[in-house]
């Protein structure tokens, strides 16, 4: 299923700062992400990559600054920012007791989209999970679970993807599928923000943002 260009809104971060306990992770961080762009967030362990992604999703509040979707601040986006983005965190948000297909379908419907069985099966097939649809997610390997989580992303087809270490646990074949999906998302006018320690290497408009190790100001590299 090709990603739809659902929106021509930009995601803007203005003067963001985040704290963890007493430690300031980053400050004065700002960027604009336009349709068709990919932003790779880099930084050492503990530099605040996940914190930044959670702030961009509206899950955490920044110590300072604000995030805008188009002209609206995140909190005021109609239907919640969740209706504009798909977030894939460290954990796959899968229920072990549900079958692979149920996991994908329930997740998509909870996200407010009407998804049918055929659409889910098509996405699962694209991720190489044909034959696993009716198995409980609990018996899958780590990498296969990650693939199911990615299936949700593809099915939801939101304009913005926020991915925390999407390549973790994926084998070469799945990484290639993900890169292909990222390229398609960008080509369709979607946006991607991701953290990874590997090279992303996707055709399209890719920039990278390096978070500082200390408390200096973040710079675009």
């Amino acid at each position: 299923m090709p990603p739809q260009a659902l929106s021509d809104e930009c995601l803007r971060a203005v003067d963001l700062a985040a704290e963890r306990g007493d430690r300031r992770l980053f400050q004065h961080l700002g960027f604009t992400l336009a349709p068709g762009q990919l932003l790779q967030v880099q930084g050492a362990n503990g530099s605040g990559k996940t914190s930044l992604l959670r702030i961009l999703c509206g899950l955490s509040r920044p110590a300072r600054g604000a995030v805008y979707w188009g002209e609206e601040p995140l909190a005021r986006v109609e239907g919640g920012i969740g209706s504009c983005l798909s977030y894939l965190g460290h954990r796959d948000a899968l229920k072990d007791e549900l079958s692979v297909r149920e996991n994908v379908l329930f997740a998509a419907r909870l996200g407010g989209m009407i998804a049918g069985r055929e659409a889910a099966d098509a996405v699962l097939a694209r991720l190489g999970l044909t034959g696993y649809e009716d198995l409980p997610a609990g018996i899958l390997s780590q990498g296969q679970k990650r693939r199911v989580a990615l299936a949700r992303l593809l099915l939801e087809a939101r304009p913005l993807w926020v991915l925390d270490e999407p390549l973790a646990a994926l084998d070469a074949q799945a990484s290639a599928i993900l890169r292909e999906a990222l390229a398609a998302q960008l080509a369709g006018g979607g946006m991607v923000i991701l953290t990874t320690h590997q090279a992303v290497d996707v055709p399209g408009d890719c920039t990278c943002l390096r978070l500082p190790d200390g408390i200096e100001v973040a710079t675009a590299c």
């Binding site: 239907g79 920012i81 209706s83 983005l85 796959d92 948000a93 909870l110 996200g111 407010g112």
Partner: peptide, 14 residues
């Protein structure tokens, strides 16, 4: 909370 579904619920449009 443990498996990450709660974050997805927080992001749900409802």
């Amino acid at each position: 909370y443990r498996d990450g579904s709660l974050e997805q619920l927080l992001l749900a449009p409802e």
